[in-house]
Design a protein around this nucleic acid. Structure first.
Lengths: 347, 347
DNA sequence: TGTTAGCACTCTATATAAACGAGTGCTAAT
DNA sequence: ATTAGCACTCGTTTATATAGAGTGCTAACA
């Protein structure tokens, strides 16, 4: 069967209406809602066709139709116009706090959730492929050394560790130079056993300190590994949509949102399947997370520059306002893109 | 009317039973449940008295009784035995990650939520009255200076800022010495305008850098101020209790939990009203947060040593297992108490 | 005087049935 | 090709009956 122009219009009307009301939509509604000037009977015939094509579904015999996953898919793929929306407050807020990436991310999810009325999540950039930029050891007090590790993108990690006895200033300076000359410019993967051995040799009596620093580096990576940093906001928004808020489903969903492990999987998956637009839409059962099969998820990959990239996602009911969400995502991505890179070249 | 021993026992039995089942409890149940060997009729008389005294309530004429807020209050105040419970895993996990306070706190809420099946929250210690311990400026690259600020309790703050042109090593060293000698040992409030002027004078041409550092210090405090850091865990646990999980109530509650502003108020309030045991119980309408008037909240103040103290809370249904919760809280507090102080004296 | 068995009464929760109404599919007329 | 009309379906709502848990009260008992 052919999906002619009229069928498209009707499908579009059905979906739009369903997005608004969350109720199955009947032929009469469409007959009035559109400017096609067709009677409900005609619409009924068309709807029957659309159902046959798998684009809409009848929840039960005598109910209106709701979009199927496939219907949504078509809607998302072909029927959305690109609307540019101004989210000026975003930009301001982001630039303001740009010196702390964590803050930026938290800000972003918050704004997204507030703007869309859905749940939003964001993953912090992984630092694997980032280059070490700077290492500094300081003697904080008699028995404690503070290691400050800066990687590209000005991500700062602190690690405090104990030493048996104070290290004098000069030695500390030497160690600092050793560490910086040996490690600077390397990605975290490039630090291998051979180098470590060499550095320890040069550090002589203080090889223990070198070990500690390397441990610190390793540890700070590992933390990111085992539980990828993820921020969420507006988790309770899902309670606003009756089809998700009945008790079992809501508990499952909120549970998944709190757990963050499944979320990590989701965001990773979306990065793998990245397409040209950078925006991914999972509809219903398309999502890799079982608990979210009644939801839709829109994800986008951001790139802050300096190799820092992560994923941001919006989770809502299948009848989410794809148009608005994708629009918001796009402008947001535009704002985030290279926010750090730009900053550096600004100076 | 007198609350004699038998009445106490019956009230106790009613509450315990209600905590378990969440259903109104009838006279027959109590008659069998207790070892009083009384008939249901007698119990009925006693219950009638207890109701008259305002300790229990009938939801409707022909239902069993449930505890009133007052009844819970009595239960909490007088009827709980101090049971010591072992939460060994807590200690281990905490010591493990003790070098990052943030991690410790996150760990603590998680464990609490998991152990009790209620929602738990914790506030990060305020740093107001902490002394500055160490300041270090480093030249990260041509135009960027990293300031690392360590306060008592090894709380580390990083702040990156821009400079017009590179500062040579020697000058940086001097600035470091200046900052450290001027500011070390001071609480953040003690830094006044006079000192600042003096330092700027000594810094001469680099007074700008001093300003930046002071700004950084001020800013890092301010962040804590405006939105007190609060971690939550197990928020979805409340959905396990039918009396809280109907749609409206649940949405309100979860909203309040996500917002964190009301939570901050709650935790502050509890710190103000601290009593000798360090543990506070808010039952139903006693809580300062409107949205939680159907819940009970148990809070406790912890003290990590070095003036770092904050509050931890557990939020659950009014029929929460006060006994267990308070027990858990107590042992937890014991674990947390002076965890940093102890650590330092260990070395 | 305290305790208890018994019973009528109350009120919710559950089950069952009936009425309603939104929406469909089909047919026949335009 | 479109549409009016109509019988039919099926979930939702409303009404009604029933069951059961629990109470308060009374009277009997130790």
């Amino acid at each position: 069967m052919q999906l002619d122009d009229r069928k498209k219009k009707i499908l579009h009307a059905i979906i739009r209406n369903y997005l608004e009301t969350g109720e199955p939509v009947g032929s009469r509604t469409i007959s009035k809602y559109t400017d096609l000037n067709l009677s409900s009977a005609t619409i009924r015939n068309e709807m029957s066709d659309l159902e046959e094509m798998g684009l809409i579904i009848q929840p039960h015999t005598s109910a209106g139709r709701i979009p199927s996953d496939m219907g949504y898919r078509l809607y998302v793929d072909t029927m959305l116009e690109d609307k540019e929306r101004e989210i000026t407050e975003m930009k301001e807020l982001m630039i303001q706090k740009a010196d702390r990436m964590e803050q930026v991310l938290k800000q972003v999810v918050k704004i997204l959730a507030a703007n869309t009325n859905y749940t939003s999540i964001i993953s912090a950039p992984r630092m694997h492929h980032n280059k070490l930029k700077f290492i500094q050891l300081s003697q904080v007090d008699e028995h404690q050394i503070l290691a400050v590790i800066v990687v590209e993108g000005n991500l700062v990690q602190n690690k405090m560790f104990q030493v048996e006895e104070p290290i004098d200033n000069e030695t500390l300076l030497k160690l600092n130079i050793l560490l910086n000359t040996s490690l600077n410019g390397l990605t975290l993967e490039e630090i291998n056993l051979g180098m470590i051995a060499k550095m320890k040799e040069q550090a002589g009596i203080h090889s223990q300190v070198v070990s500690s620093v390397l441990d610190a580096i390793a540890e700070s990576i590992q933390v990111e590994e085992e539980e990828m940093e993820i921020y969420t906001s507006g988790t309770t928004n899902i309670l606003k949509y009756p089809e998700l808020s009945d008790n079992d489903r809501a508990a499952q969903l909120l549970g998944a949102l709190e757990d963050k492990k499944p979320l990590a999987g989701l965001l990773e998956d979306s990065q793998e399947h990245e397409n040209s637009t950078g925006i991914q839409v999972y509809i219903g059962s398309e999502t890799p997370v079982q608990n979210m099969k009644d939801c839709s998820v829109v994800t986008a990959t951001y790139d802050l520059g300096d190799g820092m990239h992560g994923t941001v996602g919006i989770i809502g009911p299948k009848r989410m306002d794809y148009d608005k969400v994708i629009g918001t995502m796009k402008t947001l991505m535009a704002q985030l893109d290279g926010i750090y890179k730009r900053k550096e070249s600004d100076d």
